[in-house]
Design a protein around this nucleic acid. Sequence first.
DNA 1: TCAAAAAATGAATTAACCGTCATATTACAG
DNA 2: CTGTAATATGACGGTTAATTCATTTTTTGA
Lengths: 206, 206
Amino acid sequence: MEEQNLPRREREKLRQRQEILAAALELFSQKGYHNVSMAEIAEKAEFAIGTLYKFFQNKEDLYKALVLEQCDKFEEAITRAIEQPGDEVEKLQNYVRARVERFLNNLSFIRLFLAERRGASFNIKAGLDEELRQRYYKFLERVASIFEDGIKNRRFKKTADPYYLAAALDSAIDASLLLWLEVPERHPDLDPDAILGIFFNGLLES
Amino acid sequence: MEEQNLPRREREKLRQRQEILAAALELFSQKGYHNVSMAEIAEKAEFAIGTLYKFFQNKEDLYKALVLEQCDKFEEAITRAIEQPGDEVEKLQNYVRARVERFLNNLSFIRLFLAERRGASFNIKAGLDEELRQRYYKFLERVASIFEDGIKNRRFKKTADPYYLAAALDSAIDASLLLWLEVPERHPDLDPDAILGIFFNGLLES
DNA sequence: TCAAAAAATGAATTAACCGTCATATTACAG
DNA sequence: CTGTAATATGACGGTTAATTCATTTTTTGA
């Protein structure tokens, strides 16, 4: 990380900032932006209200920092997976596995993320919504390009526009993971490769 | 509808109620629950604030009524499509087409619905969230049973658990529709059968 | 036509909570 | 150890918005 060689005071500050963000993440993901007060965040993080304002200009700023930071982590993890060497099948396998892993390690953020990525756009968060959308579309393009390459290399049939394929795969992952999260007793198996199987192996008996 | 043979006064009331709900739907889907005030809804519906409280106990109650009513309509339309006679392939085609059609006719609610169906659960709406989840899972089961039948009848290969297939298809529909909604210039074609094609025709070259 | 009942109204009440800032506490240098 | 600077605190001012209810308006039926 970049914590390395900063003055002691600065490192301390960064750690405090992280603690506030952690408390906020937990609360926001449980109750949603509007149902969490600064007082609550302060109490959970064990700071005074005023202290929060030393780190963040206002509630919205705190929220943005939280979401963007988590997005960065998400993108880093997924990028690493996609950039492993291998053919398109392997890349997609790595992608789905990384998605699943990240999901399992970050349940609280996932709730927030899904709510944000697709939710109605709130005036109060104007700008963030648009930025997230843009980032998501760029990210989808990278997955789409795997499909595209696969088609070029005659490994995949062109069953649909690569971008739609990417969107479909990505949302199918979300759906499967949410299912597993919300009714685990009915759907115990969570096999990343099974999700891909839906796309690889056509349903129709030929 | 059930408006038929009610006293004039009652019919009048129902119509007023609908007007309030229509105004609320538009506002909520544009700005989100917390960014719409009762005063705004009242003004848009051309009633006094107090009048809203003759129809709904409070803001949350109004919101619940709105969402549940729209869900009813959604379920009716989809049920009608699924219950058309035909083999499993035709049923799935009808299902996807009905989903697309409903989407196009109800853009404002779709935004609300997607936000609600997957969004973080808000305390304030406790109960509604759970009900929606339950209804959605029941609905998924019906789609899943089409896949199940198709597998039994040797029309489909068993590429995955039918319930996961249903969830994947359903969310792929959402994803494609949202894509089309948000960046129509890049993704002009919106062909229900193309979405199904992804699931029917395997990607892998054999 | 008119008085009683029903319905509609929106000003006033009340509650929540964001963000400030005067004060208290802590850290630090001399 | 002490005075000063840096930091932390949380009570409070101000604003927004949900809900109530006394009053006005409309409807009803005799």
